[in-house]
Design a protein around this nucleic acid. Structure first.
Length: 277
DNA sequence: CTGTAATCCTGCGAGC
DNA sequence: TGCTCGCAGGATTACA
């Protein structure tokens, strides 16, 4: 569910509430998430350690701790990562509660359990592992390499945008919004994209993501920021979830196709379908 | 190389 | 009111 703008909003919300705080205890539910959270004996990297900093890379959150370790968190589809008073009752599906030294609790909630919370002994190694697997941040895409990457693959642009090793942080919502802004059909093949269009797409990615961060991300159903606030970008969707509604540019009804296994919303007129070869 | 489908889960809205 | 069905913001894997 959460894509880069939502994850960034969570990090910005949590940062002032967590930096400098010490983790005094942890409780977890009986359910496991996507990945095992830590090995026996590694809890020493967590309990009694303080939060040094929060970082985001793609859709991943790293909480850097004193002692050299870190928590690596991914929100999956329905993850919520918030700080609340320890006195407040825990919502259902709360799988982790980290007690802080100021009476608050850092809580991870995730109905579908597609997300993950992992404790790692080395913050530096975790940083590196993300660096080698993830592509560009949307605001830092190399124009030449991006155009080259696009124009040398036969994959559809939709599949390419969803590929975290190409551009990190874009998910189904923002992929559709970026393609609309660039005027490109989701089923367009990379090799068929002209240099000018590749550049339009690069710029669109940067603009859409930046604008969504400004609006604190999008809330369709579950998403909330680190302090429980919903996002606002859902009111600015041009195409996502607007099947049949008029295109904001030309009034043509928004179309829906399945690409790369995901629902893809587009304007049939502004984003003409490439001719089948 | 690329695409599709299945998988991990719960919840919700649509339709009957 | 209550049921079933399909779909959902992600990521990985197996298979064609």
């Amino acid at each position: 569910m959460p894509e880069l703008p939502e994850v960034e909003t969570v990090v910005r919300d949590l940062r002032p509430l967590l930096v400098g705080r010490t983790i005094t205890a942890v409780t977890k539910s009986k359910f496991r998430l996507r990945n095992p959270w830590w090995k026996a004996g590694e809890k020493a990297h967590l309990i009694g350690q303080s939060v040094v900093a929060l970082h985001r890379r793609g859709k991943h959150i790293r909480i850097e701790l004193t002692g050299g370790g870190c928590l690596l968190v991914h929100l999956g589809m329905t993850g919520q990562f918030t700080v609340a008073s320890a006195a407040e009752p825990k919502a259902t599906h709360t799988h982790f509660a980290f007690d802080l030294d100021d009476g608050n609790q850092l809580r991870y909630r995730d109905a579908r359990r597609f997300g993950s919370v992992e404790l790692h002994a080395s913050h530096a190694d975790t940083w590196y592992a993300l660096e080698i697997t993830l592509g560009w941040e949307p605001d830092d895409i190399d124009p030449v390499e991006f155009a080259h990457g696009v124009r040398t693959t036969k994959r559809t642009l939709k599949a390419l945008l969803l590929d975290q090793t190409f551009v990190a942080g874009v998910g189904n919502i923002y992929a559709d919004e970026c393609l609309f802004r660039a005027g490109l059909h989701p089923e367009t093949r990379g090799v068929a994209v002209k240099p000018a269009a590749a550049e339009r797409l690069r710029v669109a990615i940067g603009e859409v993501i930046a604008s969504a961060i400004e609006s604190r991300g999008s809330t369709i159903r579950d998403y909330v920021g680190g302090s429980g606030l919903k996002g606002g970008y859902q009111d600015r969707f041009a195409v996502y979830g607007r099947t049949g509604e008029p295109c904001p540019t030309c009034e043509t009804p928004i179309g829906l196709v399945r690409v790369a296994g995901r629902s893809s919303h587009f304007c049939p007129k502004c984003q003409p379908k490439p001719k089948a070869r």
